[in-house]
Computed example of a mutant assay.
Amino acid sequence: MTQGDATAKARLSAGDWAQAALDALAAGGLAAVAVEPIAKRLGTTKGSFYWHFKDRAALIDAALARWEQRSTDDVIAEIDVETDPAERLHRLFAHVIDYAATGRIELALLASADQASVAATLRRVADRRIEYVAELLRESGLSAGHARTRAVVTVSIYHGFNQLARVSPDALPSTEAQRKALVDSAFESLLPKQH
Score class of each variant (00 low, 15 high):
Ile105Pro: 11
Ala100Gly: 14
Ser156Trp: 05
Arg129Cys: 02
Val133Trp: 00
Val96Met: 15
Phe93Asn: 14
Ala151Gly: 04
His146Trp: 07
Val118Asn: 03
Ser117Leu: 08
Gln163Asp: 12
Arg150Ala: 05
Arg148Ile: 02
Leu107Ile: 11
His95Phe: 12
Ala111Trp: 02
Ala111Lys: 07
Phe93Tyr: 14
Leu110Val: 10
Ala111Ile: 06
His90Tyr: 15
Ala144Gly: 04
Ala111Asp: 15
Arg104Val: 04
Ile105Asn: 07
Phe161Leu: 15
Ala151Cys: 03
Glu106Met: 14
Glu131Leu: 06
Arg104His: 10
Ser143Tyr: 02
Ala108Pro: 00
Ile97Cys: 09
Leu122Asn: 08
Gly160Trp: 12
Val125Leu: 05
Ser140Pro: 03
Gln163Pro: 07
Leu136Lys: 06
Thr121Leu: 05
Tyr158Ala: 15
Ser143Glu: 02
His95Ala: 14
Leu122Tyr: 08
Arg124Tyr: 01
Gly103Tyr: 14
Leu142Phe: 06
Val125Gly: 04
Leu107Arg: 09
Val155Met: 08
Val118Pro: 03
Gly145Asn: 05
Leu164Trp: 02
Ala134Asn: 01
Asn162Gln: 14
Ala151Asn: 01
Val152Ser: 02
Leu142Lys: 01
Val152Glu: 03
Leu137Phe: 01
Arg129Ser: 04
Thr102Arg: 09
Ala111Cys: 11
Phe93Val: 12
Arg104Gln: 12
Ala120Thr: 07
Leu92Arg: 06
Leu137Gln: 01
Ala120Arg: 08
Leu136Gly: 00
Glu139Asp: 06
His146Ser: 11
Thr149Met: 06
Ser143Leu: 01
Ala151Asp: 01
Val155Thr: 13
Ile157Asn: 12
Ala108Trp: 05
Asn162Met: 13
Glu135Trp: 04
Tyr132Trp: 12
Ser140Glu: 00
His159Gln: 15
Asp114Met: 03
Leu142Gly: 04
His146Arg: 10
Gln115Pro: 02
Arg124Leu: 06
Ala134Asp: 00
Asn162Ala: 14
Leu142Glu: 03
Ala126Pro: 00
Ala108Arg: 11
Arg123Met: 05
Ile105Lys: 01
Gln163Glu: 11
Ala134Tyr: 00
Leu109Val: 12
Arg91Val: 08
Gln115Cys: 07
Ile105His: 11
Ser140Gln: 02
Arg128Val: 06
Ser117Val: 12
Leu92Asp: 09
Val155His: 08
Leu107Tyr: 06
Ser117Gln: 13
Leu109Cys: 10
Leu137Gly: 02
Ala120Glu: 05
Ala94Cys: 09
Gly145Gln: 04
His95Trp: 12
Ser140Arg: 08
Leu107Cys: 05
Ala120Met: 07
Ala144Trp: 01
Ala151Ser: 05
Leu137Trp: 00
Arg104Trp: 07
Thr102Trp: 11
His90Trp: 13
Thr121Val: 08
Gly141Tyr: 03
Val96Arg: 15
Leu164Cys: 08
Gly103Thr: 10
Arg124Gly: 05
Ile97Gln: 10
Ala100Ser: 15
Glu106His: 13
Leu92Val: 09
Tyr158Cys: 10
Leu110Ile: 11
Gln163Phe: 12
Val152Pro: 04
